[in-house]
C-alpha cells in the first residue's frame, strides 16, 4: 500500500519484481542502480547467498521527482526466484503497489515462467490482492539469446489479458527503464482513482 506523508510531502510506493530463478530480476535493479543519478537513488541492498543468488530480497529506493508538490519515491524489491524460497516471496509481496513479472525468454524456461506466474497469483491472493486488478506489467528478458522462444508463444502462455509488456536484455539495459516507467505510471494512475 502506498504511504502518503502530508508532513514531509512524500508519497512512497512499493514495486516488486517477480519471476523464476535466474530470470534477471536482480539484474534489472543493478542496471537501474548503476544508471541513475546519485541524488535520485539510495543505497542498493542485496540479501544474497555467497553465490549471488537472492536469499531474501534486493532493495533499491528511487526518487522520481515531484507531482503536485509531493516527492514521489519508489521502493523497488526483488523476490528470491528459486522455488523453495516461497515463504520469503510471500513476505515481500506484503503492501505491494505494483508488480513487474520478469519472464526468462529461453525456450527451456517456459515451464518455470508459467509456474512462477501461477505462484505469483496465488501468493497475491493470500494477501488479499487480485493480480488482474493491481498495476502489473510483464518484461520478457533475455531476448538476445539464440534459444529465446518466439514472442507469440510467450505472450500466449503468460499474457492472456494483454497487459503492457516489454522485451528486454537487462544487462545491457534494453527495456529496463521502459518497464520501470510503465509500472510507475500504472501505480500513479491507480492512486488517482483513490484506492
Amino acid at each position: 500500500m502506498s504511504f502518503i506523508n502530508y508532513s514531509s510531502r512524500e508519497i512512497n510506493c512499493k514495486i516488486v519484481y517477480y519471476g523464476p530463478g535466474l530470470c534477471g530480476k536482480t539484474t534489472n535493479l543493478q542496471y537501474i542502480y548503476a544508471n541513475t543519478n546519485q541524488q535520485a537513488k539510495g543505497k542498493m541492498i542485496s540479501l544474497a547467498t555467497e553465490t549471488e543468488r537472492t536469499l531474501f530480497f534486493d532493495f533499491l529506493p528511487l526518487s522520481l521527482g515531484e507531482i503536485r508538490g509531493f516527492k514521489t519515491r519508489f521502493h523497488l524489491y526483488t523476490v528470491p526466484g528459486q522455488v523453495f524460497y516461497d515463504a520469503s516471496r510471500k513476505l515481500i509481496l506484503k503492501g505491494v503497489d505494483g508488480v513487474v513479472f520478469v519472464a526468462d525468454s529461453q525456450m527451456e524456461r517456459m515451464e518455470a515462467n508459467d509456474e512462477s506466474m501461477m505462484n505469483l497469483r496465488s501468493n497475491l491472493q493470500e494477501q488479499g490482492y487480485d493480480l488482474d486488478k493491481i498495476p502489473f506489467v510483464i518484461q520478457y528478458n533475455k531476448r538476445d539469446l539464440p534459444n529465446a522462444a518466439p514472442m507469440e508463444e510467450l505472450q500466449a502462455m503468460l499474457n492472456p489479458r494483454n497487459i503492457p509488456y516489454f522485451e528486454a536484455v537487462a544487462p545491457k539495459g534494453e527495456g529496463v527503464y521502459e518497464t520501470l516507467k510503465a509500472i510507475a505510471r500504472l501505480i500513479l494512475t491507480e492512486l488517482r482513482k483513490g484506492t
Binding site: 500500500m1 502518503i4 502530508y6 508532513s7 514531509s8 494477501q127 488479499g128 484506492t195
Partner: peptide, 11 residues
C-alpha cells in the same frame, strides 16, 4: 489487505 497509510502534520 492493509489499509492505506497516511501521515498528517499534526500526528
Amino acid at each position: 489487505m492493509q489499509p492505506q497509510m497516511v501521515m498528517y502534520d499534526e500526528e
